[in-house]
Write a protein that binds this DNA or RNA. Sequence first.
DNA 1: CGACTTTGTGGTAGCGCTACCATGATGAGG
DNA 2: CCTCATCATGGTAGCGCTACCACAAAGTCG
Lengths: 373, 373
Amino acid sequence: MRMSEAGGTAKIGRKRSARRNSNSAPTIADVARAAQCSPMTVSRVINGEQNVRDNTREQVLAAIEKLKYVPNRAARSLAGGAQLRIALLFDNPSASYLSEFLMGALEEASRRDIYLVVQSTETQPDYGELIRRLIDGGIGGFILPPPLCDDQSVLDEIEDAGAIAVAVGPGRASGSHGAVLIDEFQAAFDMTGHIIGLGHERIGFIVGNPEQVASERRLQGYREAMENAGLAIDEALIAQGQFTYRSGMVAAERLLNAKSPPTAIFASNDDMAAATVAMAHRRHLDVPNDITVCGFDDTELASSIWPELTTIRQPIREMTAQAVSMIAKAYKKAGRGKESAGEQLTLPYKLVRRNSDAGPSLASSFNKPESRE
Amino acid sequence: MRMSEAGGTAKIGRKRSARRNSNSAPTIADVARAAQCSPMTVSRVINGEQNVRDNTREQVLAAIEKLKYVPNRAARSLAGGAQLRIALLFDNPSASYLSEFLMGALEEASRRDIYLVVQSTETQPDYGELIRRLIDGGIGGFILPPPLCDDQSVLDEIEDAGAIAVAVGPGRASGSHGAVLIDEFQAAFDMTGHIIGLGHERIGFIVGNPEQVASERRLQGYREAMENAGLAIDEALIAQGQFTYRSGMVAAERLLNAKSPPTAIFASNDDMAAATVAMAHRRHLDVPNDITVCGFDDTELASSIWPELTTIRQPIREMTAQAVSMIAKAYKKAGRGKESAGEQLTLPYKLVRRNSDAGPSLASSFNKPESRE
DNA sequence: CGACTTTGTGGTAGCGCTACCATGATGAGG
DNA sequence: CCTCATCATGGTAGCGCTACCACAAAGTCG
């Protein structure tokens, strides 16, 4: 069917063993035949169900291996029931964050054969209206990245309309909706601790967009780590940002202009950290030898610039993928009449050390770090 | 009513009752009923077949509109025939480029219900082996981003093995395989012309990775535009880069150190342009007032930094999506015995003007006091 | 030790759609 | 007029898989 009927190329070893099923990809029936059981049993093995004798299971697995069987997603989701459609609503996140985000969602949606609608709220500022229209259009679930994930009214709107909402990366879990997050507080705490461990004492902090709860949590982590280490917090070393590169430049400038400037700056995300590095360079400060700069999120930007940023790796892709899974599961349950519980999932973060941090230079531990390269 | 026979299975009963969530997407049968025709006719309309009376067609379309019917992809591809699997092979492209790339592919693959395998060659430097293994595993087509798209041996390997290869963004079209590209030469020509139009005469250029044919094409575009404008090309203003941020810094530094430095720098991609901006800032050069910096590709990095880069928008996502489509089409044709021709598709690029360019400052170009917008 | 549950397995019926063939209606040509 | 292509449409049979039920076999218990 898919190859010319003349000499078969080496595409897939065509097997005539089957009846008319001749040469296409092996099906569950082929596996069943090879394993001498029914297709149902094969299906059970594939789906990891319990009620299969170990002996049988092994035979099936061997057959799968031998035939290089791969389940047909299309058939799976067709048989599995109604097709789920999920909307990914985003408002105005940083570009690099968004792309990571989309990748995770797209990948998982593709894997599960879920139709993913990506919607910006920019064109439609009336969230309620937008959400209703989407639900009418058959959307069964919503994924909300920051900052939307912190907007309780949006969450409520969705649940009231009978759809499923999952917040990804909100400041903290709350309410009945699902959420996938990391421990923002602890992560910021750890990073600050790491910087302190390097020997820094005057550590600046750039706060993120105040609309997002995560910003506050990160700030708290910083504060607590400082206090924990017995370090005074100089409020002049805390600058407000917006999570954008531009705001990072402004904030970094302010910090660098302080009477007694910091020897390290911890920015609440990578965009602002990158801006801080740029601003430091502008002043002929070497990163990391004159000043340490750390970020948060580990978006691709962190490793596109130089020096590459030490940052907190937030598993954005995995988080989004999990969000898709959660919606899929909740949706199935809802079909059986069970009320979804609003699961919360906290994923691990990781401090990724790269080249933008170092111990404080002797020169700069004095107050006036006049630098040269 | 649908499924009105007595003793409908419990499944359907459940499904109908589970309708609390505005579930139960309309099917082709629902549309057929509304349009008073058979499902087959609806199918024909959806697939744009010819043999349908206009009258009927309109009725069907109206019904689709009314019911907000959306075809079920899973069912479609199940009924349609064998499932296609495509591998996206990448070697070592810039991170921002890759993510754009993936988005396009993932999106289109998801739309067409194609299974997409993303494979890095890093772990498996023997391409031939890798390709053969993938094909044995049922992969029917390959998408190749730079720099793999310029590697003729990889292309040949794939075609010899009987699979379909599509190069995305190669320097130039060649051979029998499919390709999706933009006119690299013309784009670089245009950008250089744009910079010249701003009044610049000493224009630096940062060349991309010499392994990629596109690098050379861009350089040619620059050269020709310069000559075309009667501007001398100072070889000291052409620096070699590698498409990485780091290499961009080194190249920019060299350019800025020239005895007679440029008033504008055109970097062969956004990563290197961003590095150039950073390097300029380091020297207290204002962008764009002291120096103009332009990039190429319009990856997200171009608009995450400040000032946002004037660059060439290469429709990477669309290009990749087209690549997926091309493979899907070729695959179908191959099934019918026709040999695929190796289509070439050239997509339009666009010069995106943002904030990193301006006319030369008076100080640095004493020759020509030109317009300043 | 028979009436129960609990397992492991097989059978069957579709999921929503399209390929393919069959049909009835039209018109063209003998 | 009747035969034969040529439409426009309908009917039917799956695509590969899973949900659900049936049913033996193997416990479990009073």
